[in-house]
């Protein structure tokens, strides 16, 4: 039973609901996932209990473990914010940078070490407001970095201000009368800018996140995984959305798999308000550091 699960762990469709929701404790140890946590770092994490970011951290570990990557070959680069604290707990090469700039630091690192898997971990404010320009340019260059954006539609660390992904009408500490700014569709932005791989899931669909992250990290070019999460401590409270469990449940109820979405009529699609989960782009485009390596070879006449 365990063996079967491990074999198919990245194929959520083959799991029963029970299996997907309740991974057995020994599976983590057997697959070495716990070994990816830092032994010399004090836990618990800075995240509020019930936060979705921990689910994403688990998914990231499982994806790296599934790909069989050596820990020395993985670099996690993060900006500032709740999500950006993730790398400090993980036993890889970890670079915690300035607000919004994770992708720019990651670009330098990836160019210096094209052989390494470089993963930039950002929240929605980090990646799309202060770091929005770096986001579109990293995608445009198609540099081999995986952008992991945990989208909780708010600035959690500073206490619940509206972010570039806060829906219109929602309240924030800086939108006491409701947000008046339309949000960025994160995946559409990455697609338009040229990303090679784009996918979205939610922290409720943890195993789907595993799969998307593994595919994204394995991808040569720029890849984006948007992990839709929530912040029950600020955003949830300000908008009367209930507990962490309520908000987690809402992700289940208010999301739709891309397969199902694709079957909807145009009319239904137009009126759809659910989060569409799925892999939207997976294409082969020449990766930046590979192109530059060729340029060097040509210049040097190698």
């Amino acid at each position: 039973m365990n063996e079967k699960r491990e074999q198919n762990i990245l194929d959520a469709a083959t799991l029963t609901a029970d299996e997907a929701l309740i991974p057995q404790a020994d599976w983590m140890e057997r697959s070495g996932v716990l070994q990816k946590l830092r032994k010399n770092k004090k836990f618990p994490t800075i995240w509020c209990s019930g936060c979705g970011i921990g689910v994403v951290m688990g998914a990231l570990i499982r994806a790296i473990d599934h790909l069989g990557l050596k820990s020395d070959d993985v670099a996690l680069v993060a900006g500032i914010g709740c999500t950006a604290r993730m790398p400090v707990y993980l036993d890889f090469n970890t670079l915690h940078t300035t607000h919004g700039r994770a992708l720019a630091f990651a670009t330098g690192l990836k160019i210096a070490r094209p052989d390494m898997k470089v993963i930039a971990i950002m929240g929605d404010g980090d990646a799309l407001a202060i770091g929005g320009n770096h986001f579109i340019h990293a995608a445009r260059r198609n540099i081999g970095i995986t952008a992991l954006v945990v989208n909780n539609a708010t600035y959690g660390m500073t206490g619940g201000q509206y972010s570039p992904t806060t829906p219109v009408g929602r309240r924030a500490t800086t939108a006491p009368y409701g947000n008046v700014e339309p949000p960025f569709p994160v995946c559409d932005l990455a697609i338009a800018a040229g990303a090679s791989y784009v996918a979205r899931s939610t922290v409720y669909h943890a195993l789907e996140l595993d799969k998307f992250l593994a595919e994204a990290i394995a991808k040569d070019g720029f890849s984006l995984v948007e992990a839709v999460s929530y912040c029950h401590t600020t955003y949830g409270r300000l908008n009367k959305l209930g507990t962490a469990a309520d908000m987690m449940r809402a992700l289940k109820d208010n999301s739709i798999a891309k397969n199902a979405y694709d079957k909807l009529s145009d009319e239904q699609k137009a009126s759809n308000s659910k989060i569409v989960r799925g892999n939207f782009v997976n294409k082969d485009r020449s990766e930046y550091t590979g192109i530059y390596q060729n340029l060097i070879a040509n210049v040097r006449g190698d």
Partner: peptide, 26 residues
């Protein structure tokens, strides 16, 4: 490129400063 080094024109100076730090870390 003639000496196997790498050059990149970044999207702004903030990113340029970030990239040289990232590259040195690498």
């Amino acid at each position: 490129p003639r000496v196997g080094g790498k050059f990149i024109q970044m999207e702004d100076e903030i990113a340029s400063m970030a990239a040289i730090i990232g590259a040195r870390v690498g």
